[in-house]
């Protein structure tokens, strides 16, 4: 176990590196498989101290369902923003909203901020120093509490479940 931990500190990162290497070279020949495996072992070993705590995805099925929701929301959000952009009579009502968050893990917080930026007319602008509030800029706001509810239910709850934090 300890030798496995020493040689493969992040098995998932190694797998992703191998896949990216094969995609970049657009081949699955033996030579590139070996080279990709070597890179997948060496790069995490040398960059270990940049990410000390490994990230564990605990609920795979929730992750898949969450990804599907996010893709759908990106489509809807983009069409909404496009309509606001193209309609010359539109008067969007932009606002800053402070959304309370209760995620313990750094990676989970990053995932939440990224998802919020990609979905319904919101861009995450800042995380407060105590990591309890996310400052979000909304392009067209009509109900602040509904938006906070929406973010908490649609995005924060699944992320919490996926990373179990």
């Amino acid at each position: 176990m300890s030798s496995m931990k020493r040689w493969l500190p992040h098995p998932d990162v190694s797998a992703v590196l191998l896949i990216v290497w094969l995609l970049l070279n657009h081949t699955v020949s033996i030579g590139h498989l070996l080279l990709g495996t070597a890179l997948g072992i060496l790069i995490p070993k040398f960059t270990k101290r940049f990410f000390p705590e490994p990230v564990f995805i605990k609920r795979g099925t929730v992750l898949i369902r969450f990804a599907a929701t996010v893709v759908w929301d990106i489509l809807v959000a983009s069409i909404a923003v496009a309509r606001l952009t193209l309609d010359p009579r539109s008067r969007p009502a932009p606002r800053f909203v402070r959304v309370p968050v209760s995620l313990a893990d750094d990676f989970a917080l990053t995932a939440l901020a990224g998802t919020v930026s990609l979905t319904p007319g919101t861009v995450s602008a800042q995380l407060s120093a105590d990591r309890r509030h996310l400052l979000v800029h909304v392009l067209d706001l009509d109900d602040e509490s509904a938006l906070i509810q929406d973010i908490k239910q649609r995005y924060e709850a699944p992320i919490k479940e996926i990373f179990q934090c």
Binding site: V81, T85, P94, G121, V123, A125, H137, L139
Partner: peptide, 10 residues
């Protein structure tokens, strides 16, 4: 801040 929305999402 409003200009950010176009490039990031659309």
């Amino acid at each position: 801040y409003t200009r950010l929305h176009g490039p990031t999402k659309v």
